[in-house]
Design a binder for these strands. Structure first.
Length: 272
DNA sequence: ATGCGGACCTGTTAGC
DNA sequence: TGCTAACAGGTCCGCA
């Protein structure tokens, strides 16, 4: 579920309910997520505080308060919703951040690759954050940057753009999509791609993510209240999940390979 | 420094 | 129909 557009959509969806709201309790039914949930520290330092901002860095959601920051990552299967705090918990409802107004932020994560962490450090210095590359929508993320950084790199370009040290937020689905739109073969060595082609790739990464966020916006309501599932606009995907089907541009059968054990779909005629 | 492969864990689907 | 294996949107870590 969560690539950057889903995380950003979640951020926007929950922000109005969480911002300026006072945390009254933490309910943790399962501490064993990606890392153990630091229940004590959160209870001691966040409960009683007001959330001043709901931010995001890469795919980490950041609930900021005067005493520190709660980091929430949705992993592969997590989702976060605003509910009434008295709503009974179901399977995989691991953590509730309960608020003074009777609502709660509830983390559901079947696969438990997500995480809930607490830090009092400056967030940009945090161990999981400090090494991260630029945000894809930042001006800093441009063709010059990618071109320079990639010189000498032998890794496939798909692996390169999915590396969070290079740029955050480009997950498997959107890496496949952006490379297709840019006409670049996913296996091509990152260091051998011209600046001109990086101009196109950067543009496609930004546009693909932006458009997905826009579409996510239509399902914002689903992040609050009931148990609506955010629509995933699969019909928009040009290559991901379409191996064996015809290329939308030329009709050639789309190929599937594995790169770094991730499913990679491309058109051998449109992507060079 | 770079680039691999393994690890975390459960649910769903493909294949026999 | 039932069992098993493979695979899934992430990303950190340790090793070569």
């Amino acid at each position: 579920m969560p690539e950057l557009p889903e995380v950003e959509t979640t951020r926007r969806g929950v922000e109005p309910y969480v911002r300026n709201n006072k945390v009254s309790a933490l309910v943790c039914r399962q501490r064993q997520l990606r890392w153990p949930v630091p229940v004590r520290a959160i209870e001691k330092q966040l409960v009683g505080q007001t959330v001043s901002n709901v931010g995001r860095r890469g795919k980490y959601l950041l609930l900021e308060s005067d005493t520190g920051t709660l980091l929430v990552h949705l992993g592969m299967s997590g989702n976060l919703r605003v509910i009434s705090a008295d709503q009974p918990a179901g399977d995989h409802d691991h953590v509730d951040i309960v608020f003074a107004d009777g609502r709660a932020l509830r983390l559901n994560d079947p696969r438990r690759f997500g995480s809930v962490l607490w830090t009092t450090d400056d967030i940009s210095a945090h161990k999981l954050i400090h090494h991260l590359g630029p945000e894809p929508f930042d001006e800093q993320f441009n063709a010059d940057y990618l071109h320079k950084l990639s010189r000498g790199r032998k890794a496939p370009v798909k692996t390169f753009v999915m590396d969070s040290k290079v740029v955050v937020g480009v997950g498997n689905i959107y890496a496949n999509e952006a490379l297709f739109k840019a006409g670049i073969h996913p296996k091509r060595a990152a260091g051998k791609i011209s600046k001109q082609r990086y101009v196109v790739l950067v543009k496609e990464i930004k546009e693909t993510l932006e458009q997905a966020i826009k579409q996510g916006g239509t399902t914002l309501k689903d992040f609050v209240g009931g148990d609506g599932k955010p629509g995933y606009f699969k019909q928009e995907l040009l290559v991901y999940g379409r191996a064996g089907e015809p290329c939308v541009t030329c009709g050639t059968t789309l190929k599937e390979i594995r790169l770094g054990q991730r499913s990679t779909v491309y058109c051998k005629d449109c992507q060079k």
